[in-house]
Nucleic acid binder design. Structure first.
Lengths: 148, 148
DNA sequence: TTGCTTATTGCAAATAGTTGCAATAACGAG
DNA sequence: CTCGTTATTGCAACTATTTGCAATAAGCAA
């Protein structure tokens, strides 16, 4: 993937080593990254980078549309590259995530836009649920705390 | 709305004044509440209640399905009563929210469940976008920072 | 009603995330 | 290449959220 250098500069923003490093980190792997993970990985490239910068850069990149932000499960904020439109299924028991490129969802969004007049830009929705494995496991202990 | 006292007790949990107060707070108004707001309101009923308890109770009630949790906009965690299945459209410019009781979304979820085997229990999805008003406003200044 | 078990709370310390501000450095202009 | 403007960073203080642990009190049984 090509880092959209020009996009940033064209909009009057600056292309700093910190931003490049963070983009590179997010490009490395195709999965979600928490701010802490991003920080640790970026630290290898930019030894002096701070957590504050990572947090600020992540929301900046999100605002610029270069990065997608999602709340996975319990409330963990995660980030990943805004390469293509896709969604996630997250198992609330085992935290497994599957990526869903679900065209139909887009269709529904489009309908919704027509009905409400909203312009929906959620290209990254995380849906909570139970994966097949955990459905089996929790069939008997519905409590989540054991039965005592 | 009736607080489902029995549900909690039946599952072996206890019905404490703190939990009742928090449920009452969330029942008072039909809108989202941040943990801080819940804390402030609960404080009026239970003078000694702590923030830790509020946070713990909110996630407890969420886990029990009595309360819905959603990330609105920027990453604010908000809670509200789990009265019925519905979703939200949140304008990322003016923070306006509209409630959507959108049966079609449920249909899509059902399809997804069939394809993936997941059991989806997201009954509260917040979709980000631009409301009609803000679309007009931002037509000219797409930057969000002025143009300088 | 009294006592017992143990889920839940409050407290305080720990961790996560945000923000103000002065110093730094990107990058366009000359 | 050098300079000036100002976006961005680092630092440190601050706010938000989580967690361990001992004390408390729900709710069952007698």
């Amino acid at each position: 993937m090509v880092i959209p250098v020009n996009q940033l500069r064209a909009r009057g923003y600056r292309l700093t080593p910190q931003r490049l490093a963070i983009l590179r980190v997010l490009n490395q792997v195709g999965t979600h990254r928490t701010p802490q993970e991003v920080y640790n990985l970026a630290l290898k490239e930019i030894p002096g980078i701070t957590e504050a910068t990572v947090y600020r850069t992540l929301s900046f990149l999100t605002a610029q549309g270069l990065v997608l932000e999602a709340h996975v499960g319990n409330g963990q904020l995660v980030y990943e590259c805004a390469e293509q439109v896709h969604h996630h299924l997250v198992c609330r028991a085992c935290q497994a995530t599957s990526m869903v490129d679900y065209a139909d969802l887009q269709g529904v969004f489009r309908d919704l836009e027509q009905k409400t007049g909203y312009l929906i830009d959620s290209r990254h929705v995380a849906l909570l649920g139970l994966c097949p494995d955990c459905q089996d496991k929790t069939e008997h202990t519905t409590n989540g705390k054991g039965e005592r």
